[in-house]
Simulated scan of single mutants.
Amino acid sequence: MSDTTRVALVTGASGGIGRAVAHRLAADGMAVGVHYAGNRTAADETVAAIGRSGGRAVAVTGDVADETAMSEAFDQVEKAFGGIDVVVHTAGVMQLGPVAEFDLDTFDRMSRTNIRGTFVVAQQAARRVRDGGAVVTFSTSVTRLAFPAYAAYAATKGAVEAMTMVLAREMRGRDITVNAVAPGPTATPLFLEGKDRAAVDRLAAQPPLERLGRPEDIAETVAFLAGPGRWVNGQVLFANGGIA
């Protein structure tokens, strides 16, 4: 592999938005670390698909909130490809419910993955990403849209936005951009789970573009931030089709 090949690590890349991001970055010529938490089969399928398209990829695993596991995942990507230039942290969980009834143990579990997990991955990225690289975290448009039942989830993503903005400033002097992508309703298993057709149709009608987002739409946004979007830094980029 050429020394000029850029290397990306994508967390949560065994499915949904993460898988689309892994494929998109591979199409841009990057070698990709395909991180998964539990679904090794899906991760291996993603690696194989990238390989069939002429790209290079390796599957790595680990609980994103476990600093030892994620350090090992970063080690494996560096060993396979010689370094890391881009980290995209898509991994996350979503549980919904009204504030008055929300189970606090569920809140703690979601916070561990979404807040601590983002911090752990961001910490490794701050230590490992080569100068001139990019870090992309994931928030949600619900931090602004304030849909009922999303308070706990939106709270965890508000924390993600805060740490992303601070990290962008801490990377001064290294030519590393740090941004968050905030998708709107996107047709992934995570989003569609538990919603009936009427609810999905209502959400799809909200954007002026009159459809749900696709994982590929979000992957295009990530590819911009990971590649040519060098003057976008310390921002939350809303990718939601124009929902106010």
Rank of each mutant, 00 (worst) to 15 (best):
M1S: 14
M1W: 02
D3P: 03
T4I: 07
T5Q: 14
A8I: 10
G12F: 03
S14I: 05
G16E: 03
I17T: 11
G29T: 05
M30Y: 14
V32S: 08
G33D: 11
V34H: 04
G38N: 09
T41A: 15
D44H: 05
D44Q: 15
V47C: 09
A57P: 10
A57W: 03
V58K: 09
V60W: 03
D63H: 08
A65N: 06
D66R: 02
T68E: 14
F81Q: 09
G82P: 10
V88H: 04
V88F: 07
V93Q: 04
M94G: 00
M94W: 05
Q95D: 07
P98Y: 07
A100Y: 10
E101H: 10
F102N: 01
F102R: 04
D103R: 03
D105T: 12
T106M: 00
M110S: 01
R112A: 13
R112E: 12
T113Q: 09
T113M: 11
G117P: 05
G117A: 09
V121C: 14
V121E: 04
Q123F: 03
A125V: 07
R128I: 08
T137M: 14
T140N: 05
T143Q: 13
T143F: 06
R144E: 13
A146E: 07
A155F: 02
T156E: 11
T156L: 10
G158V: 06
G158T: 07
A168R: 04
M171K: 05
R174K: 15
T177V: 10
A180Q: 04
V181I: 15
A182Y: 00
G184N: 06
P185V: 07
F191V: 01
E193F: 03
R197V: 14
A198Y: 07
D201I: 08
D201M: 13
R202G: 11
R202K: 14
L203P: 01
Q206L: 15
G213S: 11
P215Y: 03
E216D: 13
D217T: 02
A223E: 02
A226T: 07
A226P: 06
P228E: 08
V236E: 12
V236C: 12
A239G: 09
G241R: 10
G242S: 12
